[in-house]
Amino acid sequence: MTDDMANEAPRKTLIGEGPVLLDLAGGIARLRLNRPDASNGVSIALLKALYEAVMACHGNPDIRVVVLAGEGPNFCAGGDVREFASKGEALPDFLRQATSYLQIAAAALIRLEAPVIARVQGFAAGGAGLGLVCAADLVVAADTARFMAGATRVGMAPDAGVSVTLQRLVGFRRAAEILFTNRIVGAEEALAIGLVSHVVPEAELDGRTFALARELAAGAPRALAATKRLLWNGVGLGVEACLPEEARTVSELSGTADAREGLAAVIGRRPPLFTGR
């Protein structure tokens, strides 16, 4: 990931190693998921690091804009299903913790005063991938980007506020179809339905993202912060109100036989056979 800003300002490293990276130059923070070998699939360690990085942005008055991105070929492929499957009957307790960290990270992005631009390439899937996209204020996607919900495919329910944010972005009927069927939504469709703000050729993704970031960084920060707050409040902020119910539902469903079957089917690359138990 490059940003074409090398000649404009020195880049200060705020978090230089681990599953989430954070640096800053010219008022623009780059917050990057850093598990490229796992398609940035989220683990407990990544989720904790993500929350800590977002909170570091909250406490830094020099940050005017945050660019949220994923290292490697994919933005974020969702939860680490192998880690989930390894928990067996302890999965509900594990997911209760994972969901909590994901939810507070998504809520913290929404409540961050600085605008958040998601830079998306490859897959943005699951509560983490799609959820973080929905929690961003603006989204610049490569023309090869693909979006998928994925929760019901493994016998679970959406989290990260997606049950509210997705339908606010694309409407109830489209959100229901996307969440029920788990079909892949391509970049051009995502643009047409309002899931993303811009679609550009992949080779232009950094250039367009950081051009937009520089434009926002040059704006009036208090006015942008107030506008962002009003916009999110204007969607009902049912987002935060729904988080406890989402977390309870995900934890409850993860203890079912269908959830175990769904995870096994994804890992085994076969169709699941759900029994309703």
Rank of each mutant, 00 (worst) to 15 (best):
D3S: 08
D4M: 06
A6V: 12
L14M: 04
L14E: 05
L24S: 05
G26K: 03
I28F: 06
A29N: 07
A29T: 09
R30K: 13
R30W: 11
R32T: 14
S39N: 10
N40G: 09
N40D: 07
G41I: 01
A45T: 12
A49P: 05
A49K: 01
A53W: 06
N60W: 05
N60V: 06
P61M: 02
D62I: 06
R64D: 02
R64M: 04
L68I: 12
L68T: 13
N74H: 15
N74T: 10
F75T: 06
G79N: 07
D80W: 02
V81K: 05
F84R: 02
A85P: 02
L91H: 05
F94H: 10
F94N: 00
L95R: 03
R96C: 01
R96D: 06
R96K: 08
Q97P: 00
Y101G: 02
L102C: 11
L102N: 11
A108K: 07
I110L: 13
L112M: 02
A114M: 02
A114L: 00
R119K: 14
G122L: 01
F123M: 15
G126S: 10
G126Q: 02
A128G: 14
G129R: 03
L130Y: 11
L130Q: 11
L132W: 12
V133S: 02
A135V: 03
L138Y: 15
A142H: 00
D143E: 14
A145D: 02
R146Y: 09
M148A: 12
A151Q: 09
R153P: 00
R153T: 11
G155H: 02
M156Q: 13
D159W: 12
D159I: 12
A160I: 01
A160G: 07
S163W: 11
T165M: 02
R168K: 15
F172L: 15
A176V: 13
E177F: 03
I178L: 15
L179F: 08
T181V: 06
T181L: 09
N182R: 00
R183M: 08
V185Y: 04
E189L: 13
E189V: 13
G194A: 12
L195I: 14
A203N: 13
G207A: 10
T209L: 01
T209A: 04
A211Y: 07
L212W: 09
L212F: 08
A213S: 11
R214P: 11
L216W: 10
L216F: 11
L216G: 09
A217Q: 06
A220R: 14
A225N: 07
K228I: 03
K228T: 01
L231I: 15
N233Y: 15
N233H: 15
G234M: 07
V235C: 13
G236W: 08
V239Q: 08
E240L: 14
A241C: 13
L243Q: 00
E245Q: 13
E246V: 06
R248E: 12
S251C: 08
E252H: 09
E252Q: 10
E252K: 09
E252L: 11
A257H: 09
E261R: 02
E261G: 07
P271E: 08
F274Y: 03
G276N: 04
